[in-house]
Simulated assay, not measured.
Amino acid sequence: MTTIETHPVDAADRQRSPHRRSKGVLFCPACGHESPMGGDWHVDWRGDTRTRRCPDCQAVVSDR
């Protein structure tokens, strides 16, 4: 017979890594800063082009 171990949902959440990240996290390629898409990135608009820069080192993180 197979034994199945169960845990309450909150117990499972405590066992996860403290470094969980949501799917919408950007990472700075230069310094490693990370923040959600709507986080602390500096956003510049020039016409229809959006550029996100790192708040720590000013490196370009994304542009569209």
Rank of each mutant, 00 (worst) to 15 (best):
M1L: 10
T2H: 07
T2A: 04
T3N: 10
T3G: 05
T3P: 00
I4G: 02
I4H: 13
E5T: 13
T6I: 09
T6K: 12
H7R: 15
P8T: 12
P8Q: 12
V9N: 09
A11Q: 14
A12F: 01
Q15T: 12
Q15E: 14
Q15V: 06
Q15F: 05
R16N: 08
R16L: 14
R16T: 11
R16D: 07
R16E: 14
S17T: 11
S17K: 05
P18I: 03
H19S: 15
R20P: 00
R20N: 12
S22K: 12
S22F: 11
K23S: 11
G24Q: 00
V25C: 05
L26R: 14
L26D: 09
L26T: 01
F27A: 12
A30I: 00
A30M: 03
C31V: 07
C31F: 04
S35C: 08
S35M: 08
M37W: 08
G38Y: 07
G39P: 05
G39Y: 05
D40T: 09
D40M: 07
D40F: 02
W41C: 03
W41P: 02
W41D: 01
H42Q: 11
V43S: 08
V43I: 14
D44A: 10
D44W: 04
R46V: 08
R46S: 06
G47T: 04
G47A: 07
G47W: 01
R50A: 03
R50K: 11
R53F: 05
C54D: 01
D56F: 02
C57V: 01
C57P: 00
C57M: 02
Q58P: 00
A59T: 10
V60M: 10
V60I: 15
V61E: 02
S62A: 15
D63N: 11
R64A: 12
